[in-house]
């Protein structure tokens, strides 16, 4: 067992970064050599260091999205060597360390690319389409203060655990970025399944899946071709089984909504 690590061997890499001043401007790759890189450094810290160097030289730093730097906020969004969030399994870009690279590597860094995620600048894209999908139905309608006691409705542990699996989605958009069709099915499936698996989510289950899928389609994402690139890059390893589940839910909801008796009552006006 090696308890004390020996002095870290520093190495050099080249960052080949997509630079684009804005959505209307043309973009291009620019090479940034980085010497004396510590393997314990995170990839985003390398970008910090490169940016400080650019600032000192009077050049504009590389814009990249980041925040929590611990893999939970879902802000970071680079495609590294063709793979959203880079090499590694079940991590976000911020959890990528340079020990994943070797001396002399050319690391190609691109933004998440999708029509539904328009580019803002350099490596930053606009993922507000995800918020719109959520606003369409990603909730259980319960006003604050009206909830019954939390233990009044037991939830089978199996369902609760599965709902939690789906709920781990951090909304980073890697699924979209990895899918050749820029499909958001894994994201939407995770959201639909999280709420649909819980008893609290049943009253709005049908309307939720219909509304969320419709908003997803309107946002310009592609369709799913069942290649599962999404779940392969998901930082939370959310299973594509949830997509199958959503397909089923959607079809059920669609048919149910069409074959339900039509209410002719005027609704329940008080007074």
């Amino acid at each position: 067992m090696v308890a004390e690590k020996t002095a870290k061997k520093l190495f050099s890499v080249t960052l080949r970064v997509w630079r684009q001043a804005g959505p209307a401007q043309a973009g291009r790759f620019v090479d940034y050599p980085a010497a004396n890189v510590n393997p314990d450094m995170s990839f985003l810290e390398l970008l910090d260091v490169v940016n400080d160097g650019l600032t000192v030289k009077g050049e504009e730093p590389i814009a990249f999205a980041h925040d929590c730097r611990e893999g939970i906020c879902g802000t970071c969004s680079c495609t590294i060597n063709g793979k959203p969030h880079g090499p590694g399994h079940g991590i976000a870009t911020c959890q990528l360390y340079l020990r994943s690279f070797r001396e002399g590597d050319v690391i190609v860094v691109e933004p998440f690319r999708a029509r539904a995620f328009p580019l803002v600048k350099d490596l930053v894209v606009d993922r507000s389409a995800f918020d719109k999908i959520q606003q369409a139905g990603g909730f259980i309608s319960v006003r604050a203060g009206t909830a019954p006691d939390a233990n009044s409705a037991p939830v089978p542990k199996r369902d609760a655990d599965l709902a939690m699996d789906a709920a781990t989605c951090i909304g980073c958009g890697a699924c979209v970025a990895a899918c050749k069709n820029s499909s958001a099915m894994l994201f939407v499936a995770a959201k639909v399944s999280h709420l649909g698996l819980l008893p609290q989510g049943q009253p709005e289950r049908d309307s939720r899946v219909l509304a969320m899928v419709q908003t997803m389609d309107e946002a310009g994402f592609g369709s799913c071709t069942n290649q599962y690139e999404c779940s392969a890059v998901c930082p939370k390893l959310i299973s594509h089984d949830f997509i199958a589940r959503m397909n089923r839910d959607y079809v059920k909801a669609l048919f149910k909504s069409r074959f339900q008796p039509v209410s002719l009552g005027g609704g329940g006006g008080a007074g």
């Binding site: 909830a147 939390a150 037991p154 542990k157 999280h194």
Partner: peptide, 22 residues
């Protein structure tokens, strides 16, 4: 206590025991 009720009703998947209770 109201917070837990509210969040559970919203679908926050709190850990549960085999009984299905929180």
């Amino acid at each position: 206590v109201n917070i837990i009720d509210q969040c559970t009703a919203q679908g926050v998947p709190f850990a549960r025991e085999y009984s299905g209770l929180l």
